[in-house]
Design a binder for these strands. Structure first.
Length: 243
RNA sequence: CCCAGAGUGGACA
């Protein structure tokens, strides 16, 4: 039953949107009515390839087929709109979904937060977050906001947010540290950056080589070679291999 | 009965 879905997903993943659309058409011809997952999957592929016109067509087809949009489809639309730089359209979809009685979930909000962050509107994202007192953030949402704060020269706020969230028991993962360390390096707070890099290593985030290499590079650029060397040796003692 | 669709990072360069 998932055969067509897998095909659509596969073609979409490969960026072969025409082929993906074809699969959907074939389904209809074969008398197998596509469901919201088939449409949603195709929509996602189209939006990722920035084929908004085709996306609109599919959306219309879906509605004509009498299918109602669900949370996932709305989230796909909101994310796609945001990534196209159309925050307003994303907000319209959010309104539409609320009016249809569909409750946005954490993924929906994260997509929106990400859009706001990328549009230099972290403040708005944080405001929305504070209003949604019953929204429990997961690591992805946490990282999204962290990166928004770092990208919008609110590193202090990012720092505070990090402390606040970890105190609340939210766990930071390798990406969280990468974001924070990168943000701190950006404003040349190398001591703090190094502190968090160490913390990340202590937590066993082996994948932190990437950010540590980044940090090392920063230190070198700042003509602080000795510090870079110190850090380098510490990295090696953690069995990491910086580039 | 379950199994297909949605969200996050890497500054400087």
């Amino acid at each position: 039953p998932a055969k067509y879905g897998v095909l659509i997903q596969g073609y979409g993943w490969a960026g072969l949107t025409d082929a993906a659309i074809d699969v959907l058409d074939q389904m209809v011809r074969a008398g197998r009515e596509p469901n919201e997952k088939h449409y949603g999957c195709l929509l996602n592929a189209l939006l990722k390839e920035k084929q908004f016109q085709a996306g609109q067509t599919i959306l219309n087809k879906m509605k004509r087929a009498g299918l109602l949009l669900d949370v996932v489809t709305y989230t796909t639309l909101i994310d796609g709109s945001c990534k196209a730089g159309q925050i307003q359209i994303a907000c319209n979809f959010l309104d539409e979904m609320l009016q249809s009685g569909i409750k946005p979930n954490l993924v929906t909000y994260t997509a929106l937060f990400n859009g706001l962050c990328k549009a230099n509107e972290v403040d708005k994202a944080m405001r929305v977050l504070r209003e949604l007192t019953d929204l429990d953030l997961d690591t992805v949402a946490f990282n999204t906001l962290m990166s928004g704060l770092c990208d919008n020269s609110h590193v202090n706020a990012a720092y505070d947010f990090f402390v606040e969230m970890t105190n609340k028991g939210h766990k930071a993962d390798a990406r969280t540290y990468a974001i924070l360390v990168g943000g701190l390096c950006k404003v040349k707070r190398f001591e703090d950056a190094e502190k968090f890099a160490e913390e990340a290593l202590a937590k066993g985030f082996v994948f932190e080589v990437a950010i540590c290499a980044t940090l090392l590079e920063s230190l070198c650029l700042e003509a602080r070679g000795s510090e870079a060397c110190t850090l380098m040796s510490r990295l090696l003692s953690h069995d990491n291999i910086p580039d």
